Simulated scan of single mutants.
Amino acid sequence: MKTDIRNLDLNLLKALDALLDERSVTRAAERLALTQPAVSGMLTRLRECFDDPLFTRVQRGVVPTMRALELAQPVKAILAEVSELLQPKAFDAATAEMTIKIAATDYALRAVIVPFMAALRVQAPGIRVAVLPVNNEQLSAQFERGDIDIALITPDSAPPDLHARSLYDEEYVCLMREDHPLSAQKDLTLDSFCAQDHALVSYLGGNFKGVTDEALASIGRSRRVTLSVCSFLVLPEILRVSDLISVVPRRLTHDLPGLKVLPPPLAIQGFNKIVVWHERTHRDAGHRWLRELLFSTAV
């Protein structure tokens, strides 16, 4: 009789293992938390599968046949491998080797990725990081394909089918070179602020209005924006060599020699930065560790 693997399930192998260890249907049933008739029924199925009696009844239990003894070690190995398969793989950051793909704007590069990388290189030097541009329209598809693992975005651009967690709330400040004519003022006046030439960052490029202009319009004022750039990273260099001023997120002003930070003379709505990720990596031990590190370094 040829054994058909379709008739053999994991529970039958567990019963066979228990019978081989216990040499008793009663004790095997207790170990498996089953009734004795249930284990007897499983033994009948095992005999059919392997075309062998497997066990012979004796006065104090059962004794295995030669075929059953041949199966003992392979069955234990199979059950051990299945058990290992069902357990989450242990993650050791110090020895881990993997690649994580993060979608981020250049703002998030400096505000979030820089402190994250400083900690990552110390704690998990074998992990590689690929930083990609944020494409809001393609986020869901990119996550599904595995093109990205994490995205650093704002709540209004987060697809509803992703996991999300808030990193922090950001506020805006005014930035200028340290010897700018306005730098001597402790508090900028609205008139002096509006009289200056401004630079702003437009992610899509070419826009000369932003959140600051919306705030000014709400109180019947306006400013003159004479430079629009598509990256925060170049802005400090421009401010150092010009009389332009700019309203920027506070976290971009750390460690910028030659520049001065002042509070803006009106309330400008800030924004919330969040992390989003896909169900595909939600329970993975390595990705969970990386997300926790990201949360802890984004302060």
Rank of each mutant, 00 (worst) to 15 (best):
A118V: 05
N135E: 09
P88N: 06
L85Q: 03
Y107K: 01
A108C: 06
L86M: 11
K89C: 12
A124Q: 07
T105Q: 00
N135W: 05
D106P: 14
I127T: 02
A119V: 05
P133E: 08
E97V: 04
A93I: 03
N135G: 09
L132T: 04
P125Q: 04
A124S: 13
Q87L: 13
A94H: 07
T95N: 11
A96R: 09
T95D: 14
I100H: 12
D106S: 05
A108R: 01
F116C: 14
T95S: 15
A108W: 02
A119H: 02
M117N: 05
M117Y: 03
R128Q: 10
A94L: 11
R121K: 15
A93E: 07
L86Q: 14
E84P: 04
N135T: 08
L109P: 00
I113R: 01
R110L: 07
T105M: 00
L86D: 11
L120D: 12
A111R: 13
A103Q: 14
A94N: 04
T95W: 12
L120Q: 07
A130I: 04
I102W: 12
L86T: 07
P88W: 01
A104S: 09
Q123C: 01
E84S: 08
V112E: 10
N135A: 15
K101F: 13
V129P: 13
D106W: 00
P133Q: 07
A93S: 07
V114P: 00
L132F: 11
A93R: 05
Y107H: 01
A111T: 09
L85P: 03
T99C: 12
V134S: 05
V112Q: 10
V131C: 01
R128T: 10
T99H: 04
D92T: 10
P115T: 06
F116M: 14
P125K: 03
A104L: 09
R128C: 11
R110F: 00
D92M: 11
A130V: 06
T99V: 13
V129F: 01
E97F: 01
F116L: 15
A111Q: 11
M117E: 05
V134L: 08
M98E: 14
A93F: 02
P125W: 08
A94K: 07
A104P: 00
V114D: 12
P115N: 08
A119K: 04
V129S: 09
F116K: 12
A96F: 02
V114L: 11
I127E: 08
A96K: 15
A118D: 04
M117R: 06
I102R: 13
K101C: 14
V122Y: 06
A119T: 03
T95K: 09
I102V: 10
E84N: 06
P88H: 02
E84W: 03
Y107V: 00
R121Q: 14
Q123P: 02
Q87D: 09
A118Y: 10
G126T: 11
A94Y: 10
R110Q: 05
